[in-house]
């Protein structure tokens, strides 16, 4: 099977009008506008197989939304090529649009003043979904997303999390094989975030949908996707398994200790970098290759009740990657 989504040296440059402050600046902008190039996406290449769920990670302004908009056909690439479900998204027409769902975090399709069910009915007509299919799918989405009695409440009375759940339902009634989700858990409380993650996992398992999901919540990605794309300042920094990323870029390991009486912070400092010390618990950071020998030395020299060697938290690893302090291999 060909990949569901491919991006080949994809770039997007926005031309932004530069305006100097003051009246003189306004005049100059009017007579002789100057433009600045914003390289939102640069030379990004990846392929996503049918049925994959891929997390698209990066800080604000990294180029995630811009990439999704190019994949969904709203923006035209400045250079490079995209193919989604065998279509060139720009100008893909109705046949293409029936195969995708695009959920953008901020502005959404639920009609604000009406209950969600009215938007669902509208989509039933727009996507030409047969009545029995519609009823079956709606019942399933209601069950999976636990929509219960939300369908008849005006959207403006719903909480953010309830709204996002209904938004997903509206976007999936036509059962698209490819989902583009931009920050679907942004601003939601932990329970709602988990509900959405659980739903996405189940949905993908049932229908083999391909999902590309942006987020800057690490949990979204660790919980959902085994594969991540990491983008920063428009460039793809990493494409691969989450676990491999940690192994590749983190030069350290954490030794987590439970200590017995008499061990002080000063004593521990002789073995490595003390990250936390809250007796009897302590965390040491040591170079990756020294983890085993240091552990052995600790066990021999100190009264240690328990010891484990861990990778640093994924958040720290990725933050370090974004900070640019760590070189990543070209994906």
């Amino acid at each position: 099977m060909p990949p569901a989504i491919t991006a080949d040296r994809l770039s997007k440059t926005f031309k932004v009008k530069v305006r100097d402050p003051g009246l003189k600046g306004a005049l100059r902008a009017l007579l002789k506008p100057r433009y600045r190039d914003v390289h939102a996406v640069r030379d990004v290449t990846f392929a996503i197989e049918p049925g994959e769920i891929v997390g698209f990670l990066g800080p604000n302004g990294a180029g995630k939304t811009t990439t999704l908009k190019m994949l969904a056909g709203l923006l035209y690439p400045t250079s490079g090529r995209v193919a989604v479900a065998g279509f060139a998204p720009w100008g893909g027409g109705p046949a293409f649009k029936r195969r995708i769902a695009l959920v953008l975090g901020n502005r959404q399709q639920l009609v604000w003043d009406l209950p969600p069910e009215e938007t669902f009915q509208l989509n039933r007509a727009i996507y030409d979904i047969a009545e029995p299919d519609y009823r079956e799918r709606l019942a399933e989405l209601v069950a999976l997303l636990d929509l219960g009695d939300l369908l008849q409440k005006p959207v403006r009375q719903l909480s953010l999390g309830e709204r996002m759940k209904c938004e997903l339902a509206a976007a999936l009634l036509h059962r698209p094989p490819i989902l583009f989700l931009d920050e679907p858990t942004l601003g939601l409380d932990v329970t709602a975030q988990e509900a959405i993650r659980r739903f996405l996992t189940q949905y993908r398992e049932r229908y083999g949908a391909t999902v590309l999901l942006t987020s800057h919540y690490m949990q979204d990605v660790t919980a959902l996707a085994s594969r991540v794309l990491i983008i920063n300042r428009g460039r793809l920094l990493y494409d691969g398994a989450l676990a491999a990323l940690v192994a590749r870029i983190s030069r350290t390991k954490r030794i987590e200790l439970v200590l017995a009486d008499g061990v002080t912070r000063e004593v521990l400092a002789g073995f490595g970098d003390v990250k936390e010390f809250r007796f009897p618990n302590a965390v040491l950071e040591v170079p990756r290759e020294d983890a085993a020998t240091t552990s052995a030395r600790l066990l021999a020299a100190l009264p240690v009740a328990d010891l484990s060697i861990e990778d640093p938290p994924i958040e720290d690893v990725i933050r370090a990657a974004f900070a640019g302090g760590i070189e990543l291999d070209e994906p």
């Binding site: 709203l74 995708i100 901020n106 727009i126 996507y127």
Partner: peptide, 13 residues
């Protein structure tokens, strides 16, 4: 201006 055209352009209508 409010970005509400986006989802409308993503629909087959």
């Amino acid at each position: 201006r409010e970005g509400e055209l986006n989802f409308r352009l993503a629909r087959p209508l």
